[in-house]
Design a protein around this nucleic acid. Structure first.
Lengths: 346, 346
DNA sequence: TGCTATAATTAACACGCGTTAGTAACACGG
DNA sequence: CCGTGTTACTAACGCGTGTTAATTATAGCA
């Protein structure tokens, strides 16, 4: 039934050479002289026997696993986190495959994060690790930093010397608000994606303020409403903004999920988007194109984040001393909710 | 910097026993008599040295990788596929972790699928494989079947002897249509999620017909419109149904993605959901709760699919001769688009 | 005491690969 | 003829574990 294991010894015998020569040829070891004829015979024997080197043996001999791990933590925003996984994973996979690495994923829902990944490191299952949304208080991280273990953070963790890969939240927010301003709005509300204790929320607020400032619009704290990941909190935040007189003519909701709640609140108030209130979101989660009206939002390059993180990690594994943190740029996706298309049509 | 590798030899020396004893104790090998005192000393030494067995060495010795692979193929429906990944992965991960397995994921976008997973099998990187949305024409699959390689299909592939795990599309569709019928509808349109060449589309259509039949409603082929994964195709299908006189009072869109297009078409025709046309979708993709109006749909248990597939695979790996295919049940999620809540409120 | 059975432990091998240090064959200049 | 290189290869070891077969200590019984 199960086919007999083909080893390099079999290939060696078939080609009439030693196992060493087989290894040299198949791995294309530089600096060893082997006749072209011998090389041919080895390759042919390997092909005929359908030889694949056993990964465990190779790992044991080389001391490298040939795998990188990625820890996917949900944080408090399962909806958005879920929406990012596929792109992130594809980016990591693509970059890793191009460099001969496989991917091990672990999801960390509620368990203490180091339970999930420490054994990966200690058992040498992986050569390096990408942490997406880590608990910054995990006591293992400083230890791994001291050991120089290759590790890349997706997100933000400045107190440790690991390279971080993240999207440029501030410039993205600035871009969104600038768009609204250039459409003529001057009274623009802000709904945070999360409590301001979160770095991403603070950064997006900073981008909002920066855009206002650059256009000489005074910042009004009353126009800032805090939401907390879930659509319901976005709805409540929007209702608070709607109660203000005069009402803002536009709102930047710093996360598509909370923007969904804002949409609901606006419709419940019998107001139209974008005619009564223009709306711009953030994240470009994949439902954004399909809600009513289709949402103008800031696209976050999930695939690019995964790719970049993997490339950075591989550089670390290869021993590069200084691998810099990276902030990826965002993109404004203009759909219907901001009113730009309608305005242009006039 | 990098800490010195701790081997079982170190543990043995520290505990004053042989390496063999260490292995016996730490692996809790049954049938070997070891003094309680010795056991204690070994465990203590292991703990003090922070010993973790190297996975490559263990794999080489045992012949088992301790990993299972999952191939995520997009098929022609990236939107829905993306929405399923996270739940599927979490289910697989949870079941695998509980049984001491790690997860290797490979995404297969456009590349020939066997390029993506054949080396995983041949290099013995994984003890078994879960294929999500495989190309049924891959010539490697019959070969793996002959070898008895542990493999589970997520989806449908009856011509090969692998266990399949899928959702019960027919009973789910029947449930959706039955719901509309029990709300009083008798003229119900059907929009397929995909061309009827696809098994899932045929099964969902069969469920639709079954529900009609069970309620004595004659089947009218004119009320069946074929869509093709994307929202635009759902929009076109809906427009065809809207052109029929008399207009259907309800529509079962056999996929949430095409249902989005249907929503757009209905709104474009200045009709209201559910007042003019009631709508039920399928899949419960996570935007379903947030579109306008919130969509009544059939929930597909992505997590459960992953869990079940992993459990089946582990049974195969453990040598169970007959691992049956499984069809998981669906659940009707009643929201606004079907009109049930409104009706009840009257 | 002497013999046997059992409990406790270990020496030695296997897993399949990469790799270092070495060998044999041969050419070449003097 | 010797000595020195160079080319083309191989013998042998190490990686860190699991496991089989053998060995030594301990108890039981006559």
């Amino acid at each position: 039934m199960a086919r007999r294991q083909v080893t390099s010894k079999d290939v060696a015998e078939r080609a009439g050479v030693s196992r060493t020569t087989v290894s040299f040829v198949l791995n294309n070891v530089p600096g060893v002289k082997i006749t072209e004829e011998t090389r041919r015979r080895v390759w042919e024997a390997a092909r005929e026997l359908d030889y694949y080197p056993t990964s465990a043996a190779r790992s044991l001999a080389t001391g490298r696993a040939g795998r990188i791990g990625i820890i996917l933590a949900e944080g408090q925003d399962p909806l958005a986190a879920d929406a990012f996984w596929p792109g992130l994973l594809q980016g990591v996979t693509a970059a890793a495959r191009g460099n001969g690495y496989r991917i091990i994923v672990q999801t960390a829902e509620d368990v203490p994060s180091h339970d999930v990944f420490l054994s990966l490191v200690r058992e040498q299952e992986v050569d390096g690790l990408i942490l997406s949304g880590p608990r910054s208080d995990d006591p293992i991280l400083p230890e791994l930093a001291r050991e120089g273990f290759p590790l890349v953070i997706h997100g933000h963790l400045p107190e440790l010397p690991f390279p971080c890969v993240d999207v440029d939240n501030r410039s993205g927010a600035r871009r969104a608000v600038q768009h609204l301003i250039s459409l003529g709005h001057r009274r623009i509300g802000f709904i945070s994606n999360a409590p301001l204790a979160h770095m991403s929320a603070r950064e997006r607020l900073a981008g909002y303020r920066q855009a206002l400032e650059e256009n000489g619009i005074p910042f009004d704290p009353a126009l800032v409403a805090e939401a907390n990941f879930l659509p319901e909190t976005g709805e409540r935040a929007m209702n608070r903004l709607l109660a203000i007189a005069p009402r803002p003519t536009a709102v930047f909701a710093a996360g598509d999920v909370v923007a969904l709640g804002a949409v609901r609140a606006i419709h419940a108030a019998q107001l139209a988007i974008p005619d009564d209130i223009a709306l711009v979101g953030f994240d470009d989660l994949f439902f954004a194109a399909y809600v009513n009206p289709p949402m103008t939002t800031i696209h976050v390059p999930a695939y690019g984040l995964g790719w970049t993180a993997a490339i950075a990690l591989i550089a670390l594994i290869d021993g590069d001393a200084e691998v810099p943190s990276v902030m990826l740029d965002t993109e404004l996706i203009v759909r219907e909710s901001c009113g730009a298309k309608r305005q242009r049509a006039l």
